[in-house]
Design a protein around this nucleic acid. Structure first.
Length: 862
RNA sequence: GCGGCCAUGGCGGAACUGGUAGACGCGCUAGCUUGAGGUGCUAGUGGGGGAAACCUCUUGGAAGUUCGAGUCUUCUUGGCCGCACCA
C-alpha cells in the first residue's frame, strides 16, 4: 500500500474548510497571536518564494494554535500596480479583469498548499471596499497635518508620459521606453514621514524580535547626524553679479570642531547662489551643465572624480572675520542634503582632501592623534578621521573632538551665526503616481479654492471602468469626463486629482484592516484592532527591509495619532526568509532553458532534451523568470503533494538563509512522507487500543525510547519557538528512526510505540498537516489534530539518570565514561583516572590539575 | 570607499551560555530484496595510519586568551548583502 497524497490532501482541505477550523474570532479568555505573511502581488501563479513564505507562516500559525493561542492568520492581495496596466496595454485586457483572474488562480494554489488561513477576511487592495477606507485615512491624515502637496523633481519618461521610480531608471533611461529620462518639476503629494524620523529611529531599539540586520538598514536609511548649521558672510570686496545675489552662505557640518582647518567653501551646482552667478558667468553655466549631465547617467563611474569651479567669491570665516575662504561650486556637493553648501576641511575629510589636492588648497591639521606630536604631524594622502586633541585652533586648543564640537557650537550660537542642529537623510514620502491602476487621491483642484479634499460623504472616489490604454500617459487624465467635477466648496467647475497612490500606501495598513476586514462604514474597528494588533509574527522577504516596513511603521503612528489604532509599532516580531536558488541553464546560443528542458547526466554534464545538445550549467542563483531557473510549485504539488513541498522548504536550510532547490531534496522529502505513512498504516508491532493505561515498568531499551519521545517534544517545541525548523525536522526524523527500529513484541513496547507514533503525528502537524491528520486518524482518533493540543514533555523524563562524560588528558579526548548524574566531583575524578585509556594517555605522569565540569567533561592536566 | 553578515565532510547543514565537531538529510560504496520506469532493507562513509584496539590531522588562513576554542580577541583571505560623494 502506498500513501495516496492527492486524495488525502484534498479530503483534509475540504474537512478544514467545512468545519471552519481556521476562523478567527475575538476571544478575550485566550491569549491572541497574530501571524502574518507578507501580502502577495497577484501575478497569476505562485512561485517558490511564496511557498517558503507561507509554509513558514503556517507552521507558526498551526503551532501557536495547538499551544492554545487564539490565532489570526489572514491572507489577501496587493492588487494595484503597474503590471496590470502593462497587461492592459499589451493584451487589451482590463486591469481589473486581469487582476481578479490572477487572484482566482493564485487563491486556488494557496488552498492546495493546505494553509490554515481564515479566508473570510480575504480582500484585495483594489477592491473599492478597501480603497474607499484608504481615502478616508488620507483625508484624516490631511486634517492631522501628515499630508502636503509640493513641487518636486521627478523622473519623467517623455515617451510613456509617466513618472518613474528611481529603480525604474536604468542608465538614465526609462526601463520600458528606453528614452532618456528627464527631470521634471511636478506638483505631487507627500506624506510627512520625517515628522517621525527621530521616533522611527529611536523605537528600533525596542523591536527586539526584529533581525538586527533590518534594524541596522533602517537606522542607516533614516540617517541621523548631528552638527551645526550657520552662516558664512560673503566678503564685501567679492565680486557681485547683481543685487539679488545672497549676502551669505549657510552651511551644514557635523564637524564644527575642525572649523580652524577650513580651507574653502563649496556649494552645490544646484545652489541658488550658483544659479545667480551663472547668469553672468558663461563658464560657470557650462560647468553646471556638465555636472547635470554626469549626475544622471554615469553616477557610478564618475563618483571618484571631483570637479570644482572657483567663483572668485570670498567668504569670511565665522570665527575670524579677517580670514577669507575661496568659494567653489563643486560637483560632489548635494543640494538636497543639509543646506547644499559645506566648508572644506581637507585634513579631516577624505572628499575635502581629494578636492584640496586637486586645486592646491591648504591642508591644515587641527586634530592631533594621541600618538603624534604637533611639530611633526602631517597629512599626506590620508585624512585623519579619528579622535584626538584639537590644536592650531585658537580657543578650541586642547579639547578632545566631542568637547570641541560643543564649544564651537556654543561660540557659533553666541555669535548669532547659527545653531547646533540634527539632520536626517530620510525624505518625505512622495505618494503621487501618474497611473490608472491605483487608489485615487481624494482631492479636487479648484481655480479659486485650491486643493480641496473630497467630502467624506462623497467617498469613495471610484476608478472609472471605461478607460482606454490606447496612448501613453495616465488614462485618468485622458478620460472624457471623470476628472470634471464641481468644487465642493464653491461649486465652480473644478478638476479631480488624477494621480493615484503609490502601492506602498495600500500595503501600509492592510495588516490592520484584516482585524475588521468586512467592516463597511469605516476603515477599522477599534475594539477588534486593539484586540489583535500588533502583528506578533510577520514573515516575508528582506527586500522589504526598508520601504514597506518603514512606511508601515510611519502609517501606524499616523493612524494612532488620528485615533484609528492604539499602537505605534505594527510588527512586534519580524522574520525575513532567504531566497530560493537553482542552477541556470543555457543552450549553445546562450539562450536560457527551463530546468525541465534539460537532462542532467550523472557526471554533472547536462544536455537539452529536445536537441540532445550540450547545455552550459550556470551556478545556483536566485530563481528568476528572466533566467528561467524556476520550478513551478503547482507542478510539484501536483506530483508530490503539498506536504512534500512544505517538508522540503523546512528541511536542511535554516529559513533565514538561501535555499537551494534540488530534485534530490524533493525526492528525499517524498520518501520520508511515505515512511511516516507506512509506520502507522503497517506498524511493526500491533498497537494497543487508544487509552490503554501506561505500563508500570519498562525494559531499559524501551525506557530509552520513552525518554527520546519526551526529549523530542521539548526540542521540537523550542526549535519552533526559535524558527529552527530545519532542526525540528532533524529531531523528528531521529524519533522516527528510533521508532522504526523497535521490534520487541511485548505489551510495554507496543504501548511505547503508540505513544511515539502519536507524538510524531502531533509534532509534524504544523509542518505536514495533511499526513499528520491522516496518521492521527489511522491511529484511531476521532477528534482531529487541528483540535488537539500540543504535546507536553514530562520534565521527569528529560532528566537522565546516567550521563556520558568526556575525559580529556591535556585537552585531548581520551575516553568517555558513563557516570550517575550529579556524581560528586571527587568520585568522578577517581573514576576518570581509573579508566584504562586515560591511564595509558598519562603514561605514568601524575595529574597536576583536574577540571571537572559536572555531567559534561573532565580534563586531566599532566 | 563606508557599514554589516558569512566561511564546518563530495553537498545542504547540526553543535543552546567556550566543554565528546560532523546530529539529521542528500550523495556515494558494498550486499540483499523488489522490479519495468520518483521502491524497500542491511552495513559503511571527514583525511592519513592500523587486522583491530587505537593513534594522528581536521571547522578559509595566521597568531593570541584559556585546563579546554567551530564558538572569544587581533590580523588576514574569500564570498554575500545594504548604502554610496549624506559634509
Amino acid at each position: 500500500m502506498r500513501y495516496n497524497v492527492q486524495e488525502s490532501e484534498t479530503r483534509w482541505q475540504k474537512i478544514w474548510a467545512d468545519k471552519k477550523s481556521f476562523l478567527a474570532v475575538e476571544d478575550k479568555s485566550r491569549p491572541k497571536y497574530y501571524v502574518l505573511s507578507m501580502l502577495p502581488y497577484p501575478s497569476g501563479r505562485i512561485h517558490m518564494g511564496h511557498v517558503r513564505n507561507y509554509t513558514l507562516g503556517d507552521v507558526v500559525a498551526r503551532y501557536k494554535r495547538a499551544c492554545g493561542f487564539n490565532v489570526l492568520h489572514p491572507m489577501g492581495w496587493d492588487a494595484f500596480g503597474l503590471p496590470a496596466e502593462n497587461a492592459a496595454r499589451e493584451r487589451k485586457i482590463h486591469p481589473a479583469t486581469w487582476t481578479y483572474d490572477n487572484i482566482k488562480n493564485m487563491r486556488a494554489e494557496l488552498v492546495r498548499m493546505g494553509l490554515s488561513i481564515d479566508w473570510t477576511r480575504e480582500f484585495a487592495t483594489c477592491d473599492v471596499t478597501y480603497y474607499k477606507h484608504q481615502q478616508k485615512l488620507f483625508l484624516d491624515f490631511l486634517k492631522a497635518g501628515f499630508v502636503y502637496q509640493k513641487e518636486a523633481w521627478a523622473n519623467w519618461d517623455p515617451v510613456d508620459h509617466t513618472v518613474l521610480a528611481n529603480e525604474q531608471v536604468i542608465d538614465g533611461k526609462g526601463w520600458r521606453s528606453g528614452a532618456p529620462v528627464e527631470k521634471r518639476k511636478l506638483s505631487q503629494w507627500f506624506f510627512k514621514i520625517t515628522t517621525y524620523a527621530e521616533e522611527l529611529l529611536g523605537a528600533l531599539e525596542g523591536l527586539d524580535r526584529w533581525p538586527e540586520k533590518v534594524r541596522l538598514m533602517q537606522e542607516n536609511w533614516i540617517g541621523k547626524s548631528s552638527g551645526a548649521r550657520f552662516m558664512f558672510a560673503l566678503a564685501d570686496d567679492s565680486k557681485q553679479s547683481d543685487d539679488t545675489q545672497p549676502k551669505d552662505i549657510e552651511i551644514f557640518t557635523t564637524r564644527p570642531d575642525t572649523l580652524f582647518g577650513a580651507s574653502f567653501i563649496a556649494i552645490s551646482p544646484h545652489h541658488p547662489l550658483a544659479a545667480a552667478l551663472a547668469k553672468n558667468d558663461k563658464k560657470l553655466a557650462a560647468f553646471i551643465a556638465t555636472c547635470d549631465r554626469t549626475s544622471t547617467s554615469e553616477v557610478a563611474i564618475e563618483t571618484a572624480e571631483k570637479h570644482g569651479y572657483d567663483t572668485g567669491l570670498k567668504a569670511r570665516h565665522v570665527f575670524d572675520q579677517s580670514w577669507k575662504l575661496p568659494v567653489y561650486v563643486a560637483n560632489f556637493v548635494l543640494m538636497d542634503y543639509g543646506t547644499g553648501a559645506i566648508f572644506g576641511c581637507p585634513a579631516h575629510d577624505l572628499r575635502d582632501l581629494e578636492f584640496a589636492l586637486k586645486y592646491k588648497l591648504p591642508v591644515k591639521p587641527v586634530v592631533l592623534p594621541p600618538d603624534k606630536t604637533a611639530e611633526t604631524f602631517k597629512i599626506d594622502k590620508e585624512p585623519y578621521l579619528g579622535n584626538g586633541t584639537i590644536f592650531n585652533s585658537d580657543f578650541l586648543n586642547g579639547l578632545d573632538v566631542e568637547a570641541a564640537k560643543q564649544a564651537a557650537i556654543n561660540k557659533i550660537q553666541s555669535l548669532k551665526a547659527g545653531q547646533g542642529t540634527t539632520l536626517f537623510r530620510l525624505r518625505d514620502w512622495c505618494i503621487s503616481r501618474q497611473r490608472y491602476w491605483g487608489c485615487p487621491i481624494p482631492i479636487i483642484h479648484c481655480e479659486s479654492c485650491g486643493a480641496v479634499p473630497v467630502p467624506e460623504k462623497d467617498l469613495p472616489v471610484k476608478l472609472p471602468d471605461d478607460v482606454l490604454f490606447d496612448k501613453p500617459g495616465n488614462p485618468l487624465e485622458h478620460h472624457p469626463h471623470w476628472k470634471n467635477v464641481s468644487c465642493p466648496k464653491c461649486a465652480k467647475p473644478a478638476r479631480r486629482e488624477t494621480d493615484t497612490c503609490d502601492t506602498f500606501v495600500d500595503s501600509s495598513w492592510y495588516f490592520a484592516r484584516y482585524c475588521s476586514a468586512n467592516l463597511a462604514d469605516k476603515p477599522l474597528d477599534r475594539h477588534q484592532v486593539d484586540y489583535w494588533l500588533p502583528v506578533d509574527q510577520y514573515v516575508g522577504g528582506v527586500e522589504h527591509a526598508i520601504l514597506h516596513l518603514l512606511y508601515s511603521r510611519f502609517f501606524t503612528r499616523a493612524m494612532h495619532a488620528t485615533g484609528h489604532v492604539g499602537v505605534d509599532e505594527p510588527f512586534a516580531g519580524l522574520f525575513t526568509q532567504g531566497m530560493i536558488c537553482h542552477e541556470s541553464y543555457k543552450d549553445k546560443d546562450g539562450k536560457w532553458l527551463y530546468p525541465e528542458e534539460v537532462e542532467k547526466m550523472p557526471n554533472g554534464q547536462a544536455t537539452e532534451i529536445k536537441t540532445g545538445e550540450a547545455v552550459t550549467v550556470g551556478r545556483s542563483e536566485t530563481m528568476s523568470k528572466s533566467k528561467k531557473n524556476v520550478v513551478d510549485p503547482g507542478q510539484i504539488i501536483d506530483s508530490y503533494g503539498a506536504d512534500t513541498a512544505r517538508l522540503f522548504m523546512l528541511s536542511d536550510s535554516p529559513p533565514e538563509r538561501d535555499l537551494e532547490w534540488t530534485d534530490a531534496g524533493i525526492d528525499g522529502a517524498w520518501r520520508y512522507l511515505n515512511r511516516l505513512w507506512r509506520m502507522v498504516a503497517e506498524p511493526p508491532i500491533a498497537l494497543p487500543p487508544i487509552g490503554t493505561p501506561r505500563p508500570q515498568n519498562f525494559a531499559a531499551k524501551t525506557e530509552t525510547i520513552i525518554r527520546l519521545i519526551h526529549r523530542t517534544i521539548a526540542d521540537v517545541s523550542s526549535d519552533f519557538e526559535r524558527f529552527h525548523f530545519n532542526r525540528a525536522v532533524a529531531r523528528v526524523r531521529e524519533l522516527s528512526n528510533a521508532l522504526e527500529e523497535m521490534n520487541a513484541n511485548d505489551t510495554e513496547s507496543a504501548w511505547v510505540l503508540r505513544e511515539g507514533l502519536e507524538t510524531l503525528a502531533r509534532l509534524i502537524n504544523p509542518m505536514l498537516p495533511h499526513i499528520a491528520e491522516e496518521m492521527w486518524k489511522l491511529l484511531g482518533h476521532k477528534i482531529m489534530l487541528v483540535e488537539t493540543p500540543w504535546p507536553k514533555a514530562d520534565p521527569a523524563l528529560l532528566i537522565e539518570d546516567t550521563v556520558t562524560i568526556a575525559v580529556q588528558v591535556n585537552g585531548k579526548l581520551r575516553a568517555t565514561i558513563t557516570l550517575p548524574r550529579d556524581l560528586d566531583a571527587k568520585k568522578a575524578e577517581a573514576l576518570a583516572l581509573a579508566d584504562s585509556n586515560v591511564r595509558r594517555a598519562l603514561e605514568g605522569k601524575t595529574a597536576k590539575k583536574i577540571i571537572v565540569v559536572p555531567n559534561k567533561i573532565i580534563n586531566v592536566v599532566a
